[in-house]
């Protein structure tokens, strides 16, 4: 045996031991994000400009917040297909509260967000109490939300013309002189909030427990159903925030949008290293995953890559991300 080799083996072990496997995936994802940013910066002088970076962050905010919420559900081993259209329904309800019913803007915003939690609560009920598989339950909620958004709005956009302060929620700048729109800060705050709930609270611990082994969790005396409902409601809260943000940025609730956003959110979660089979995942990973998606689309657009190819590239990136995850797990 070569002692030198032995030595490096030991060093490798030492390095690997403290890093949990989830962290490795994060490091990988983060490295890919940096590589992408470097690549696009070299390829076009217009990419690494302050306004474009802010643009990327802004375009990440809505999908990113949706993805943060979905992360909880996916870690429990579930899936939430309803977030895209439920987000639209929250936009529409915010429009109903503020424009139709004339509620003060802050109240309308809070109610719009709570409506998202309520939609999540219903998904949770269907999954936990009625024992409908999450895929089907949230698929149904997706359809219900889409239909209701159209019915309630009368298939017309609801405008916030009388409440100019509403558009400031997403596009105003809270720090004077720094041209970073609030939507970006809201995304950051929601990410920190998600991180704390997932890593530091009992809700987070049960989220992981449910995803790792639901039966064992149940047998150890945990009220599994109650926690599932709570977790889906929290995911819904994020959906509500995304809905308000989207309405604010467009200064209107557009009832026809939203379908397909759930898949982009799920893709961001998966790229960020959260396992679709549950039990593993991090909020930081999801943030990085969402950023990878928007850096990729923005960069390809700046390079004027035809749109049909942009979608192909994003698809390939998803395959690569999930494959890297599988390889890592086989080694472990």
């Amino acid at each position: 045996m070569n002692p030198e080799l032995d030595n490096t083996e030991a060093v490798k072990k030492k390095i690997r031991l403290p890093i949990r496997s989830g962290a490795l995936q994060q490091v990988l994802a983060f490295a890919s994000l940096i590589v992408l940013i470097l690549f696009f910066s070299l390829a076009s002088p217009n990419f690494f400009q302050f306004s474009n970076i802010v643009g990327i962050l802004l375009s990440t905010s809505v999908i990113g917040i949706l993805a943060l919420g979905v992360t909880f559900v996916i870690i429990t081993g579930g899936i939430d297909l309803s977030v895209g259209t439920a987000m639209t329904l929250c936009s529409v309800m915010t429009g109903v509260f503020i424009t139709f019913w004339g509620f003060p803007t802050p109240l309308g915003v809070v109610l719009g967000i709570l409506f998202g939690a309520f939609a999540g609560f219903l998904s949770g009920l269907a999954v936990a109490k009625m024992k409908i598989p999450p895929f089907i339950a949230t698929l149904a909620v997706m359809m219900i939300a889409k239909g209701l958004a159209l019915v309630i709005s009368g298939t017309k956009p609801i405008y916030f013309s009388d409440t100019p302060e509403f558009s400031q929620i997403a596009l105003g700048t809270i720090i004077p002189g720094l041209a970073i729109p609030n939507a970006v800060w809201i995304f950051l705050i929601m990410a920190i909030f998600g991180y704390i709930v997932l890593s530091k609270t009992v809700i987070g611990r049960y989220t992981f427990a449910l995803g790792s082994n639901e039966e064992a969790t149940r047998l150890s005396g945990v009220n599994v159903n109650r926690w599932k409902i709570i977790i889906y409601s929290i995911a819904g809260l994020f959906t509500g925030v995304a809905g308000v943000l989207m309405a604010s940025r467009l200064n209107s609730a557009q009832p026809a949008l939203g379908l397909g956003y759930e898949l982009e959110a799920i893709a961001a979660v998966v790229i960020g290293g959260t396992s679709l089979s549950g039990g593993k995942g991090t909020m930081i990973g999801t943030v990085i995953g969402a950023l990878i998606m928007s850096v990729l689309t923005n960069g390809l657009r700046i390079l004027s890559v035809p749109q049909e190819w942009q979608t192909v590239v994003v698809g390939i990136v998803i395959i690569l991300a999930v494959y890297a995850d599988i390889l890592r797990r086989q080694k472990a």
């Binding site: 076009s44 217009n46 990419f47 375009s59 004027s304």
Partner: peptide, 26 residues
């Protein structure tokens, strides 16, 4: 004509598309 992109008539996607084009062609 420097670029033609397709936004599916989606307000939000079209906004981000247009911003990227404006960034690429100041």
């Amino acid at each position: 004509i420097v670029d033609v992109q397709y936004g599916a008539g989606d307000h939000l996607k079209s906004t981000d598309l247009a911003k990227a084009i404006l960034a690429a062609h100041p």
